[in-house]
Computed example of a mutant assay.
Amino acid sequence: MTDPAQSKSHDKGPTQRPADAWVSSDPLGQALDFLRMDGVFYCRSEFTEPWGLDLPPMPDCLMFHVVTEGRCVMLTSDPEPLDLQQGVFTLVPHGEGHVVASSADAQATNLFETERYHVTDRYERLVHGGGGTPCQMICGAVHMDHPVAERLISLLPQTVRFDTSDPDRGDTAQGILNVMASEVEKPRPGSEAVIARLADTLVIQAIRTWIEDEPAAQTGWLAAIKDPQIGQALQSLHQDPERPWTVEDLAEQAAMSRSAFSARFSELVGESPMRYVRSWKMQVAAALLKSEGATVAELAFRLGYESEAAFSRAFKRVMKVSPGSIKCDP
């Protein structure tokens, strides 16, 4: 596995659409559409008991594991080990360091001290263990840098689990998992692109399942995204952050009066519409500074500020750092 910071692709900044772009009737679907991932690495792991693998933290990455044969446990900062069964897709949304092992008391070896075979620059095969009962997994880490995606991910818990064998939800996911396992086991021309797309799909499936089932997902920003009227206003803003939005403009998108919109927006989101607009513009600016190396002058003009100084003050007020401190990723 190479340094994740060196493996990211940075040719895609935040999605920008013209103000007159078609607005979907599914704002949550549009938010999920922003979950466009750049694969950092993927690995087919072949373990035999006893075994343990210590994975380092990967900031700004979502890490995932799915057992294709056998079972194992995952140890995080939570005191209780998490059982990983065959067919269960487990997502570690915040890139937290953790251990996967044959049992909670198995000795764990650092990832970088294990025997790994590089299939391609981003694909590896890992073989490790004491020769006992086998366990096979597909693991990976993906990165996404769109502000909508970052906001959505920030709301997720320490781990998210999705059972691909669930007959009510998992038929398609199980098929995807089978294809992914085949592509990793026997790479062919285009396997890298296929696995990346399949991983995207499983990550989205896991997050979508959490949103549907988790009570915490029925409040706050996610509730606002799913609201038939507030969601339309948020979607329009997310699509066109460069527009000089006013409360009246957003209320129009929601087909509500200004006062009713402001009250409903504040109730769901937890902040006023214009405060959210200012915050959103700065998050977009930060993403553009990272992904495109945009200049402060360019962003000040694009986002409707009178001067670089005014933009810089607004940026620091929201992001707590100056725009000049944000470096473009190599």
Score class of each variant (00 low, 15 high):
residue 237 L to T: 06
residue 288 L to C: 09
residue 218 Q to M: 08
residue 236 S to A: 15
residue 253 Q to M: 05
residue 246 T to R: 04
residue 231 G to L: 03
residue 292 E to Y: 01
residue 251 A to S: 12
residue 276 Y to V: 02
residue 219 T to L: 08
residue 288 L to M: 13
residue 233 A to S: 15
residue 265 F to M: 08
residue 281 K to Y: 01
residue 277 V to C: 03
residue 254 A to H: 03
residue 272 S to I: 01
residue 254 A to Y: 04
residue 283 Q to M: 10
residue 290 K to H: 15
residue 263 A to T: 13
residue 289 L to R: 15
residue 250 L to Y: 01
residue 240 D to N: 15
residue 284 V to S: 01
residue 289 L to I: 02
residue 279 S to I: 00
residue 224 A to H: 10
residue 261 F to W: 09
residue 221 W to M: 14
residue 270 G to M: 11
residue 264 R to P: 01
residue 238 H to G: 09
residue 291 S to D: 03
residue 234 L to I: 11
residue 257 S to A: 04
residue 261 F to N: 07
residue 249 D to M: 06
residue 266 S to I: 01
residue 224 A to P: 11
residue 237 L to W: 06
residue 222 L to D: 09
residue 288 L to G: 00
residue 261 F to Y: 14
residue 220 G to Y: 11
residue 237 L to K: 05
residue 235 Q to F: 04
residue 291 S to E: 12
residue 287 A to C: 06
residue 229 Q to M: 08
residue 238 H to T: 06
residue 230 I to V: 15
residue 268 L to K: 11
residue 254 A to E: 02
residue 215 P to L: 10
residue 262 S to D: 08
residue 284 V to M: 05
residue 289 L to F: 10
residue 286 A to D: 10
residue 215 P to S: 12
residue 251 A to K: 02
residue 240 D to W: 10
residue 285 A to S: 13
residue 215 P to I: 11
residue 265 F to Q: 08
residue 241 P to K: 05
residue 228 P to G: 08
residue 238 H to C: 08
residue 283 Q to A: 13
residue 265 F to S: 07
residue 257 S to T: 14
residue 236 S to D: 00
residue 265 F to C: 09
residue 265 F to H: 08
residue 273 P to R: 07
residue 284 V to A: 04
residue 276 Y to Q: 11
residue 282 M to T: 05
residue 245 W to F: 09
residue 243 R to K: 11
residue 226 K to F: 04
residue 287 A to Q: 04
residue 275 R to T: 14
residue 284 V to T: 09
residue 220 G to L: 09
residue 223 A to W: 08
residue 255 A to M: 10
residue 270 G to F: 09
residue 244 P to S: 14
residue 236 S to G: 02
residue 291 S to K: 07
residue 244 P to W: 02
residue 238 H to I: 05
residue 253 Q to N: 13
residue 291 S to M: 14
residue 279 S to Y: 06
residue 267 E to K: 15
residue 269 V to H: 03
residue 261 F to C: 09
residue 222 L to E: 10
residue 217 A to Y: 10
residue 277 V to R: 02
residue 291 S to H: 07
residue 216 A to R: 15
residue 289 L to K: 14
residue 252 E to P: 00
residue 251 A to R: 01
residue 217 A to T: 13
residue 268 L to R: 11
residue 243 R to G: 01
residue 272 S to H: 12
residue 233 A to N: 10
residue 234 L to E: 07
residue 236 S to P: 00
residue 223 A to V: 09
residue 261 F to D: 10
residue 271 E to H: 05
residue 239 Q to W: 04
residue 245 W to K: 02
residue 284 V to F: 02
residue 243 R to E: 13
residue 217 A to D: 11
residue 282 M to N: 02
residue 250 L to G: 01
residue 247 V to E: 12
residue 252 E to S: 07
residue 264 R to S: 13
residue 243 R to V: 13
residue 225 I to H: 02
residue 219 T to M: 06
residue 257 S to W: 00
residue 237 L to E: 07
residue 260 A to V: 12
residue 250 L to E: 00
residue 281 K to M: 07
residue 266 S to L: 02
residue 251 A to E: 00
residue 257 S to K: 06
residue 267 E to R: 14
residue 222 L to T: 15
residue 231 G to C: 05
residue 283 Q to S: 12
residue 278 R to I: 03
residue 271 E to R: 11
residue 242 E to F: 10
residue 269 V to I: 14
residue 287 A to M: 01
residue 235 Q to C: 13
residue 258 R to N: 13
residue 240 D to I: 00
residue 292 E to Q: 15
residue 280 W to H: 14
residue 233 A to W: 04
residue 260 A to G: 10
residue 278 R to F: 02
residue 248 E to F: 00
residue 266 S to E: 12
residue 229 Q to A: 12
residue 263 A to R: 13
